[in-house]
């Protein structure tokens, strides 16, 4: 019963701050609300007993990606309101389209359930020990390829960020 309350609390925080990302006028407030969303989602991971993912999520999203966003907003001095926001009718049409998608998805998923053998809060698969076993045995090649992807991304970011033309 207690986990249910935590679930609803975290969901409310995540949804509220996700909506505030879109509603805030200044980009920097959007970035800070997005950080709050990410922390709420990290709480969800802990609720699922996926501790490794929770830690990686906080490090990668709250630690790296949010800092990148904040640096971009602050260094480029982008913290102004949108000069020419989209016309109102486009916004209304976009919100109607998004809500229709939401209704369709909820209509599909409503009442869906799977037979659970044991309490998900007690599963051990989310721990570092078990995930490491799987990651370094079954998924070793994708793991190494991910490092190559990171190297490529790093070279690309440096190349794009250079002042003089290539």
């Amino acid at each position: 019963m207690f986990t249910k309350y935590i679930f609803f609390f975290l969901s409310t925080v995540a949804l509220y701050s996700a909506i505030m990302v879109l509603l805030s006028r200044k980009p920097i407030h959007s970035v800070l609300y997005l950080t709050l969303t990410f922390f709420a989602i990290a709480g969800h991971y802990i609720l699922l007993n996926a501790q490794f993912l929770a830690v990686v999520h906080v490090i990668v999203y709250a630690g790296a990606i949010m800092v990148l966003f904040l640096f971009t907003v602050m260094l480029l001095n982008l913290n102004k309101e949108e000069v020419s926001p989209k016309p109102v009718w486009i916004k209304i049409v976009a919100i109607i389209a998004g809500c229709l998608l939401m209704i369709v998805l909820i209509g599909i998923f409503r009442g869906y359930d799977i037979a659970i053998e044991k309490d998900p809060a007690l599963t051990q698969i989310g721990l570092v020990k078990n995930l490491g076993q799987v990651l370094y045995k079954q998924y070793l090649l994708p793991f190494e390829l991910a490092s190559i992807l990171f190297l490529t991304a790093m070279v690309g970011a440096v190349l794009l960020g250079k002042k003089e033309q290539i």
């Binding site: 949804l15 907003v73 949108e82 926001p85 976009a94 919100i95 998004g98």
Partner: peptide
């Protein structure tokens, strides 16, 4: 919960002009 969060993201892509957002 995840469908609602996903749809908020979709609406954000549709209504914003700022590339960062």
């Amino acid at each position: 919960f995840c469908s609602v969060l996903f749809c908020i993201g979709v609406i954000g892509v549709l209504i914003k002009r700022n590339a960062l957002l």
